[in-house]
Computed example of a mutant assay.
Amino acid sequence: MAVSGKRQRAIVVVAPRGTIPERLRFGLERELPWAVLHEVDNVATACNTFPETVSLILLHPDAVQPAERSAPQIRRFHPLALIGLLQTDIADAGLQTREIVASSKILQGLVPLRSKAHEFVAIVSFMLRGGQYFPREMLSVEAQAPPPLLAREIIQLDGLQLTQLTRRELQILELVSRGLQNKTIAAQLYLSEFTVKIHLHNIITKLGAHNRTEAAAFFRDSQPTPLSRILG
């Protein structure tokens, strides 16, 4: 049903029928009436046009590898869509989920299906607006709550204030700007490669960059105050 005053956008779920519980479907319909949910059984079906602009594609874990192989086709049909992983069982699939996200080149968020309806709607709404969401519990304890930068530690970056980045994110961004890869950064900072990848997702989102290369270029061009002075 069309909703006046707001352009409809589509969420394409690539998963077995019934993967999205009714309570979550109802929450979406009630809170986001302009978002149309399409459920398809396979990635090939998702690589087609839909009546609405596709803004979000949610993949069942079994659909991730086919989606990786079909990434060019997905991008051709849905260039504006974020791609997220449906976490089907938080208790039993934690390790599997980490491995899937860490090895993926296309996943930009994680949507837990065991969430409460209002939490699920909030996550989906955030991703529909272009945000990349990963639950805090998926980060290592060390990386969960780094202290925010103080006001005196402002760095200007092409008009952007890096105070929105945490200390850990600044450290990682500096290492990325030196050309280091995730595995090397993880070893230097005693983090998992997965945690580094999540931090990079957050850095790119906060800076409004398109990818790690652009974020690193912004950082290099800014000639910021050395991090040793900033981080004390």
Rank of each mutant, 00 (worst) to 15 (best):
L85Q: 02
L86P: 08
L86M: 10
Q87A: 03
Q87F: 00
Q87C: 05
Q87H: 03
I90R: 15
I90E: 14
I90G: 04
A93G: 12
A93S: 14
A93Q: 13
G94R: 10
L95Y: 02
Q96F: 12
Q96C: 09
Q96V: 06
T97M: 13
T97Q: 13
E99F: 01
I100E: 01
V101A: 01
V101C: 08
S103R: 02
S103N: 04
S104I: 08
I106T: 07
I106K: 01
I106H: 00
I106S: 02
L107Y: 06
L107N: 08
L107K: 04
Q108S: 07
Q108L: 09
G109M: 03
G109K: 03
L110Q: 01
V111R: 02
P112W: 00
P112F: 01
P112N: 02
L113A: 13
L113Y: 15
R114C: 13
S115K: 11
S115I: 08
S115R: 06
S115W: 02
A117Q: 08
A117F: 07
A117M: 06
V121E: 09
V121S: 14
V121T: 13
A122G: 15
A122C: 07
I123H: 05
V124C: 12
F126E: 07
F126H: 06
M127E: 08
M127W: 05
L128P: 05
R129S: 06
G130R: 08
G131V: 06
G131M: 13
Q132V: 12
Y133E: 05
Y133F: 11
R136D: 15
R136S: 07
R136C: 06
E137H: 15
E137L: 07
E137W: 09
E137M: 14
M138A: 04
M138P: 08
M138V: 12
L139W: 01
L139A: 09
S140F: 02
V141H: 04
V141C: 04
E142L: 09
A143D: 06
Q144H: 04
A145Y: 10
P146A: 06
P146N: 03
